[in-house]
Amino acid sequence: MELKFFCREIFLRFFSILLFLTWLPGLSYLRTMNTEFHYRSEPAEKLAIESVSKTFNGRSGKVHALDQVSLNIKEGEFVCLLGPSGCGKSTLLNIIAGLDPPDSGQVLADGKAVTGPGRERMVMFQESALYPWLDVLGNVLYGLKLKPNLTRSERRKVAHFYLKLVGLEKFVHAHVHELSGGMKQRVALARALAPNPRVLLMDEPFAALDAMTREQLYGDLQEIWGKQRKTIVFVTHNVREAVCLGDRVILFSRSPGKIQDHFDIALPRPRGMNSANLANYAAAIDERLKELLKKEQGELNELKVLNG
């Protein structure tokens, strides 16, 4: 049994080295991304979004995903970007992350222009985007291995700490496919938190989960945020979710994607999904959202009438 295991290990090692060697020539001219930062004199907000615009060339012509969007986010703030699907909120999140460049305008993180993704701004996606060829611990370690000046044992310690934080210390060596949807998102959260980013960008991370799991995760996320005080930008189309989590809810409208309203949520934490106050806030925001959608629909109808 031992021998078999050993042989397999040797074989896999040998194979990975072979694969590695065969790929090298093709890789040499794959350009690495430029992640230089441009310094500005006055460090201001944690995140400053300055008149960011972005258009996509869709199948039915140009889509104005973002139109001159400006927003300031303070250190340690929990901000929710709320809007109907297609309002450009995810696009904005990707621009803040540095995954996509804006057409015009810029995003400043700590006063420095964002020109590419960086580990000080971690992203959590709607799908967990966990790597199936690594186990749970391996996934959390992936980002840590890219962080300089950490020894092997330090990395493992940090990974274990965050897996414990999200309540998965018993599943350290589980395979990704063995986890439930909620557990996968917990691992993704641990993976995003592990390199200790100052900003956490979350793109509808709980949208695909069932209501009960989601509610549990709201609680956990608020607790972790309370402990670690990260700056969190959370994209959602769920009004209650936004009110439950955010210090501030930013309301977006679509075509073109624009900020329509700000709501400060002055509710004590931890917030439960079913409290009456929360429902009141949600009702007010919901009303405003419906108003916006109606207006948008009206404009569309007008356009149709005009076009004959």
């Binding site: 890789l27 993704p117 993976r191």
Partner: peptide, 9 residues
């Protein structure tokens, strides 16, 4: 991977 600091090769 890119958000975690991985680049290119």
């Amino acid at each position: 991977a890119r958000t975690m600091g991985s680049r290119g090769w």
